[in-house]
Design a protein around this nucleic acid. Structure first.
Lengths: 143, 143
DNA sequence: CAGTCATGATACATATAAAGTTACATGACT
DNA sequence: AGTCATGTAACTTTATATGTATCATGACTG
């Protein structure tokens, strides 16, 4: 979705779900489902009808990767975690506490780092990277 | 599994897969499947026949939570990651690089922290926590 | 106003992985 | 010989994500 947002930012005029779907090698409905979160957060806007589609609706400077992550969906950052926290077992309490402690710190790091990078940062990085190479100003999507 | 290992360490005599399964609210076969990784790593031993079952086969001091994590199975630490790294799209390259950078650091932190805690540390923590409370010396499993 | 193009939304189908289940073979103890 | 336990394989169930089909709605166009 970051990929999509950056393309969208560099595209004048709306992008349709179908175009994005083709770009991602997926399906327009899936695109709508996923972008719905970003729309609800106010980061993009969608217009119906002729000439409709998806447009950036925010200041890239004020939206971080963390914002996108949260808007798009998963509260689950880790593939591991404590399932059955049985409050009756001291061993489990201790193990969970130890694992939670580590996981909390790692999540804090992720949140901090993802929160520190804005979409504008990425966009600027792209400018720098492609300076003098106008090819990349177009959408080079492929798959 | 950490839960199981600590119980096992405080249990004299082997624990059967069925007992462990009941303790975890799961199935003996699932227990065998999961513990197989720990057995292959040499952290536990399994004996067949009468009086058989699972026993700790390592020095708790020398096995970290990271070791257990790796032996038990999942190379996937994060629920997020880059799927289709399309080498033709500069935007995707940049996004992936940015996300990978953050993920690498977070994973490094996890590895460091999980590697710094041994099973013996947890066991000692349990001793400290339950000092003067002999109830917890028994398996209080429940579910 | 009719036609089309787009999203919104719902319901259903498929794919994948994890967990659970069943069944049987093997080895060990009594 | 009988029982108890693991080892293993095959199958089923469950959960989740993804893909698909369909129709309603709104917006632009001629």
């Amino acid at each position: 979705m970051l990929h999509v947002l950056l393309h969208m930012a560099r595209h004048d005029g709306p992008m349709t779900s179908e175009a994005i779907g083709t770009m991602l090698g997926t399906n327009p409905v899936v695109v709508r489902r996923t972008l719905a979160g970003l729309r609800d957060a106010g980061y993009v806007r969608s217009d119906k009808g002729h000439g409709g589609g998806w447009v950036i609706a925010c200041d890239l400077e004020r939206v971080s990767l963390l914002d996108v992550y949260r808007a798009v969906g998963g509260p689950r950052l880790f593939a591991i975690g404590n399932e059955h926290s049985n409050p009756d077992c001291a061993i489990e309490q201790l193990v969970n506490a130890a694992v939670d402690d580590v996981l909390r710190d790692a999540e804090a790091l992720l949140v901090e780092r993802l929160g520190a990078v804005s979409l504008a940062d990425l966009s600027k990085g792209l400018d720098a990277r492609c300076a003098g190479d106008p090819r990349w100003q177009l959408e080079r999507v492929g798959r």
